[in-house]
Amino acid sequence: MGIDNAHYYGWEGRLQSPWRSSLAIVRVALLQVFRRKSYWVVLALGLLQFLMFWGLIYAIKQVNFPQQVQDEILEFMGFEGAGATENGYVTFMQQQSVIVMILLAFAGSLLVGADFRMGSLPFYLSRRIDRRHYILGKLLAISTVVALMTVLPAILLFLEYGFLTASLDYWVDHWRIPVSVLVYGAVICTVLSILIVCVSAYLQRVAPIAITWSSIFVLLASMSRLLRRDGGSMYWGLVDPWRNMRYIGRLCFGTFETNEELNFALWALAIMTVVCGVALALLVRRVRAVEIVE
């Protein structure tokens, strides 16, 4: 193996802050995600949706469709209601989030579950970092994946619309949109990353993670719909995390028609904050270098 020919050479240098090591965790996590060919199928879905929106915006701005057709296209894209433009971005980002959610259901096991399952956690924590750096690294890694599929395409669509409008007024009138996209993106990244890292840390394998993950976002949504049906209170909608996220999005974009909707959004924000806080506390409890059976 050549060990007789190799000599050991020392290293002289200064070690940097452990916080920088979180970036190494992000880099490695992205490598892991983008090297899995099966994940590219899901990433391609997100790209297809983005291209569809891109194409429709191009068509609306460049082709002289009759007004009715234009309206139908805009309605299809979610650009409807009082804050039509803003709602369109909320809808687009939420649809992208659904695709990210599918990706995370599989990637959670690889990025986080494997560290627990294969005993890699002591590999991380026996270096200079502690669990704060590890958790931050994993959250940033998931957030980067989420942002790449939600925030980046939304910003690109905003830029496309702006450049095709060819008017400076568009940028002046709609300066809040990119800011809102970034704020809403930060909310989606925070919520999805905390939840998936927590679920993956406890369940570790793909199947239980996927089942739990889909239960959170599909089962609770169905339950919420059933509870609201037949004149039930609209506040049963707060059971649905997806709906809560949509309302938080509208809060970011400021597109409410009634005070009741605003109240609902504030409740949604409070609930999601508590859920994320609890998940984060559970995560901190779970991430230990040494695991012991009582």
């Binding site: 090591s21 190494a24 490695v28 690889l110 494997a114 294969m118 890699s120 270096r127 200079r128």
Partner: peptide, 22 residues
């Protein structure tokens, strides 16, 4: 075993160096 899936050998050792703060 304590390995990180999908990584190559050199990336794994580089990661260890990064985690030490190099």
């Amino acid at each position: 075993a304590a390995t990180v899936p999908v990584l190559k050998g050199v990336e794994f050792v580089t990661l260890a160096g990064d985690l030490y703060g190099m």
